[in-house]
């Protein structure tokens, strides 16, 4: 781990307390003289340090832009407790502006990038959702990122990636913000009925039928204001800022979300997808409700009865059949209760 990351991790860990320069130097595996240029770097990143002649040093303001070393330090602080090496966040890249982070990650994947790399953009000029729908990603107001994964999943199990990501994002944001969040099958994170986060998973299959890679694209509206949203999205879309009425510190949220995704990934790949499904059930606002499934131009009405082991939605149709919705669009019949 680079000394700058270790130094930042030590400063984040001590919080508002001071840490002596010799202790900081130990943490970064450097000499006291060696850490001085790194302290300058932290200020260049936008952090503010206070150096006290007797007490030592502390971070009075963390960088509020997404800076790779700072994100790695925050993630290290959370992940260190377990001692298992990280996959998600193993490598982080940040871009000022790009078309779509999913496209950037796909290009990396084609060139052999190992799983776990995460790419953030401050702004996406052509962020997208399903079937080419656009996703509004204004500069510096949200977390627009994509994660490269190379899990061993069968063709009937890819939906697990959507479920895993939804649970991770909802749980991380709920814990960080205290807001009531819910999941709508299969890929929406909602706050008070409005969409807070979109997830778009794109995969590529290799010639013998196995999964080559999956790109998990996530867009979280953090500090987006109502005025930033196109007219047709107001009322359907929201942000942490709109719901909580205050600004949020992006780098802290990044660490919470990535670490939670990593934990869910470990569960999924460790054969514990059932646990993720139980978490889903506790966040879900789809089950037990009358739904219409628009599939292939036809409509089926029924009750959202549960989820099958791959994450597919089980619908008990009005004529008594049980079917699994693997694709298609689920529409709620009745007015939403809590979400």
């Amino acid at each position: 781990m680079p000394p700058l990351v270790l130094l930042l991790a030590a400063l984040h860990r001590t919080g508002c307390h001071h840490l002596s320069l010799s202790k900081l130097a130990d943490e970064a595996v450097l000499t006291e003289r060696g850490i001085l240029p790194l302290l300058d770097r932290i200020e260049e990143m936008g952090g503010r340090l206070e150096v006290h002649p007797h007490l030592g040093c502390r971070l009075i303001q963390a960088p509020d832009r997404l800076v790779v070393e700072d994100l790695q330090a925050r993630l290290l602080m959370l992940a260190d407790k377990g001692g298992v090496p990280l996959v998600i966040g193993r490598c982080i890249r940040t871009l000022t502006e790009t078309g779509s982070t999913n496209d950037v990650v796909r290009e990396l994947a084609r060139n052999g990038e190992p799983g776990g790399t995460v790419v953030f953009a401050e702004k996406q000029t052509s962020g997208r959702g399903r079937q080419g729908r656009s996703w509004c990603s204004p500069k510096g107001k949200g977390l627009w990122f994509s994660v490269l994964l190379r899990p061993r999943l069968g063709a009937q199990e890819v939906g697990r990636l959507t479920v895993m990501t939804g649970v991770a994002v909802a749980r991380a944001l709920e814990e960080a913000s205290g807001l009531p969040l819910q999941l709508k099958w299969p890929n929406d994170v909602l706050c008070r009925r409005r969409k807070l986060c979109g997830i778009l998973v794109e995969t590529q299959w290799i010639a013998n039928g196995g999964l080559d890679y999956a790109v998990v694209g996530v867009g979280i509206n953090v500090n987006v204001e109502a005025a930033d949203l196109p007219g047709d999205l107001r009322g359907k879309t929201t942000s942490l800022r709109i719901e909580a009425g205050r600004e949020w510190h992006l780098p802290a949220l990044v660490a919470d979300v990535l670490w939670r995704m990593e934990k869910e990934r470990r569960r999924m790949e460790g054969g514990l997808f059932g646990e993720i499904l139980s978490e889903w059930a506790s966040l879900d606002c789809t089950l037990g409700r009358q739904v219409r499934l628009r599939e292939y131009g036809a409509e089926v009405r029924g009750l959202a009865a549960g989820m099958d082991p791959t994450g597919g939605l089980l619908i008990r149709t009005d004529d008594g059949r049980m079917m699994v919705a693997a694709a298609g669009e689920v529409v709620f019949e009745e007015a939403a209760k809590d979400c």
């Binding site: 939906g159 959507t162 794109e202 995969t203 590529q204 299959w205 290799i206 994450g311 694709a327």
Partner: peptide, 10 residues
């Protein structure tokens, strides 16, 4: 497309 996952097939 399965469960909103876009699977490119070669």
């Amino acid at each position: 497309e399965a469960m909103k996952v876009m699977n490119e097939i070669k």
